[in-house]
Write a protein that binds this DNA or RNA. Structure first.
Length: 237
DNA sequence: TCATTAAATTGTT
DNA sequence: AACAATTTAATGA
């Protein structure tokens, strides 16, 4: 079982292009940007590898450079409940970083991923010095709140096609996941894990959505043609 | 660069 | 859960 320390040891500084792709880096002033760049590290996460575990002290604020992560918790019955997937461009953990608490969820890589980490101390320094950074974090919290409210609605839908559509729409959120763009690299199996349906059923739903013209199914990924149509999928069965 | 092979992913039952 | 078909990735000439 890989540990947090093994991930810790495989860190390296970010390349210039990786740095440029970070959504909040452009909101910083030169001095602030320098400080962030000096601290930022990336690590490769193997499929199934755990990046943070419930109860561990939060030492980093994380961002997905490439790949796909899963946010989940284990309940009292030992079952795993998945909250959301985190595609490229997504940053998470600011809640626990703000309060300097322990992680309240597990983060696992669904496939081979590159993850950036900003130390909590630097995270706080940026909060204390950069208005742009504060705006980003506030916007992030607000947008995420909207997603979780929407997720509750999704959970109550009994129509699998609608569940898949709305879950997909969440993953294509341009504010939370600006790294995704037009095509989301995700296999139908991975999507099935996230939505909580069988791969067969997800495949069927994707075919339906493709027929409706809101997405296009590609090998190893999905292309969104009409994000609004995905979002407005009805709850009815 | 091309052809062959293995692995991954999809579509279907 | 299993299977065949398809697409991609890896390998070596």
């Amino acid at each position: 079982m890989p540990t947090d320390t093994s991930l810790h040891q495989r860190r390296r500084p970010l390349t210039e292009s990786e740095l440029e792709a970070i959504p909040w880096i452009h909101l910083l002033k030169p001095e602030e940007r320098q400080r962030a760049a000096d601290d930022l590290k990336v690590a490769e996460a193997a499929p199934g590898e755990t990046l943070c575990r419930t109860g561990r002290p939060a030492t980093y604020w994380f961002g997905v450079i490439d790949g796909l992560l899963k946010m989940s918790t284990d309940n009292a019955q030992g079952q795993t409940m998945t909250y959301t997937g985190i595609p490229p461009g997504g940053w998470f953990g600011e809640g626990t970083a703000l309060k300097r608490e322990a992680y309240r969820y597990n983060i696992q890589a669904l496939r081979s991923s590159r993850v950036a980490g900003l130390h909590v101390d630097t995270f706080h320094w940026l909060l204390d010095h950069s208005i742009g950074f504060n705006r980003f974090v506030m916007n992030q919290l607000n947008e995420r709140l909207g997603q979780f409210i929407a997720a509750r609605e999704i959970d109550r839908m009994n129509n699998p096609d609608a569940r898949v559509a709305r879950s997909l729409a969440a993953l294509f959120n341009p504010v939370l996941y600006p790294g995704v763009g037009e095509v989301l690299r995700i296999t139908q199996q991975e999507l099935a894990y996230l939505v909580g349906l069988s791969r067969q059923r997800v495949n069927e739903a994707l075919t339906t959505l493709a027929t409706q013209g809101s997405i296009r199914v590609e090998y190893g990924g999905l292309r969104v043609l009409d994000l609004a149509a995905l979002r407005s999928q009805l709850v009815a069965s």
